[in-house]
Simulated assay, not measured.
Amino acid sequence: MQIPKLKPNTDNNFFLMAGPCAIEGEEIVLRIAERIVKITDQLNIPYIFKGSYRKANRSRLDSFTGIGDEKALKILEKVGKEFGVPTVTDIHESGEAAMAASYVDVLQIPAFLCRQTDLLIAAAKTGKTVNVKKGQFLSAGSMKYAVDKIVENGNTNVILTDRGNSFGYQDLIVDFRGIPEMRAFNVPVVMDCTHSLQQPNQASGVTGGKPALIETIAKAAIAVGADGLFIETHPDLANAKSDAANMLQLDLLEGLLQKLVRVRQAVI
Rank of each mutant, 00 (worst) to 15 (best):
I217D: 09
F64N: 06
G164P: 01
S59I: 11
N44F: 01
I159D: 02
C193E: 09
V88R: 03
C21Q: 06
H234C: 09
N165S: 15
V187S: 03
S52C: 07
T126W: 07
D192V: 09
K74S: 00
A221H: 03
V267Y: 10
V85A: 08
Q42C: 00
S166R: 14
R262F: 09
F64C: 07
L256H: 07
A33F: 11
H195M: 09
I91E: 09
A98W: 06
E26C: 04
V151G: 05
D162R: 03
N186G: 00
I173K: 01
A124G: 06
V88C: 07
G255P: 11
T161S: 15
L252C: 11
S102M: 03
A100H: 06
A100S: 13
Y47R: 01
G66S: 13
E77M: 07
T233C: 15
F167A: 04
A101H: 08
D11I: 01
G25H: 10
I231R: 04
S63P: 07
E181V: 15
M247N: 10
A124N: 02
I173E: 02
I28M: 14
I173M: 13
G66N: 12
I39Q: 01
S242R: 04
H234T: 09
L229T: 05
G135F: 14
A203Y: 02
I159V: 14
G51M: 05
L61E: 15
G66A: 12
E27M: 08
L260H: 11
K78Y: 08
F230H: 05
V104I: 15
Q170W: 00
M247I: 12
S63K: 08
N155M: 10
G95I: 13
S142T: 13
I150H: 10
P110L: 09
I48N: 01
I67L: 10
E96S: 06
A220Q: 14
E24H: 09
L248Y: 02
P188Q: 07
L250T: 07
D90N: 10
G51N: 08
G228F: 06
D251F: 04
N131T: 06
I231C: 06
L43K: 00
Q202N: 12
K144G: 15
G225R: 05
Y47W: 01
I75Q: 01
T161Q: 11
L16N: 02
D243F: 08
M247Y: 11
E70I: 15
I268D: 09
C114H: 03
K133N: 12
D41T: 13
H92R: 12
R262H: 13
P8H: 12
L6V: 10
V79D: 06
N131W: 03
G51K: 04
A226W: 04
E24V: 07
T129F: 06
Y169K: 11
A122T: 05
A97L: 09
L256R: 04
